[in-house]
Write a protein that binds this DNA or RNA. Sequence first.
DNA 1: CGAACGAGAGAACGGACGTTCTCCCGAGTC
DNA 2: GACTCGGGAGAACGTCCGTTCTCTCGTTCG
Lengths: 191, 191
Amino acid sequence: MEAAAQETRILDAAEELFYGRGLQAVGMAEIRDVSGASLKRLYQLFPSKDHLVEAYLRRRDLRWRASLAAYVEARSPGEERILAVFDWLREWFAEPGFRGCAFVNSFGELGATSDAVAEAARDHVDALKDYLASLVAEAGHSARLARSLLLLVEGAISTAAVCADAGAADDARETARGLLELDFARTGGAG
Amino acid sequence: MEAAAQETRILDAAEELFYGRGLQAVGMAEIRDVSGASLKRLYQLFPSKDHLVEAYLRRRDLRWRASLAAYVEARSPGEERILAVFDWLREWFAEPGFRGCAFVNSFGELGATSDAVAEAARDHVDALKDYLASLVAEAGHSARLARSLLLLVEGAISTAAVCADAGAADDARETARGLLELDFARTGGAG
DNA sequence: CGAACGAGAGAACGGACGTTCTCCCGAGTC
DNA sequence: GACTCGGGAGAACGTCCGTTCTCTCGTTCG
């Protein structure tokens, strides 16, 4: 099999296993089994487990944000798109195997030990913050609102995971609606 | 040394190490070294690492909430106490060694594998939710507000940790102030 | 045809770690 | 003083895991 396809299968296996059970709980042998690649190939494409972990995080960040953006951008511009973020969260939370934010989880597990993991996690949150800021700007709201939304999104993800309660997305959505109203009043309805 | 004092020292060492570096990154030998207890004593008091991890989480939950409550209850009842939660968070975030929510971190690392860890994390979040609900009720606000506050608190903790930015506490506090205002308007200022 | 190459399967190596075992010592008891 | 008991220090054991090595086999190219 060609290398590119194998890399994809390896990353698919890594994502499923790392996200589902944690970074240290999954061994290279299991990734070999699930991906179908040989151990030799695995180490050719990713010279160490650390490299594979980082590649997993980087790809997941890209895909996660792309999925969110695709969902959001199907709505018409403005406040609807901001609220769509929470609709997307709700669908995600209801998926079987949802286990919180891969980046927060990885940061908690290895952030103290691995700079690469800590950076990947921070980059993800920064990128999410920027994306929320772009939606907020599009809707004509204040930049401050984006920071509030980030807290709501991250808070909803964590509590939904720990409490196994997808309703956190609804709470976050309602709260965001309130914040939009409030910010609308503050900025005088310029958006 | 008497057993009770040794148990405390072991739990102190476990908390420092587990919280600072993660559950799986810390071995029993290191907890022995830091606590000063012998391995034999360690296993007498905690029959396995799993038991020690759970004891660490349970004690941390109690202490964490007691510290928050002590800080909050130094303020006069009402909205001030709600905002005090975020002042407390800000101080916590600024402490050296702050590394996010011990329960979210532990859940991410071992929640998929260990029911005890998953339950301890959920119990912690549930207790926090109840505490926030009590503050909200005391201030005469709607129960819905408590759910919003929980998201803000958890979101602030996660983003402050990952982004190494204590400013998340300020964002959360400002957002909470807005929500109080909004909820005040909604409930007609009954509180 | 034969030699070199690349790939897969899995054994092997080295280290880490949870847990148990051994050995030794000091205190208390008769 | 001998005997027992408990406790400390650390070796030992078994397992797991990241990584590398070996062996084999099919393919390609001269």
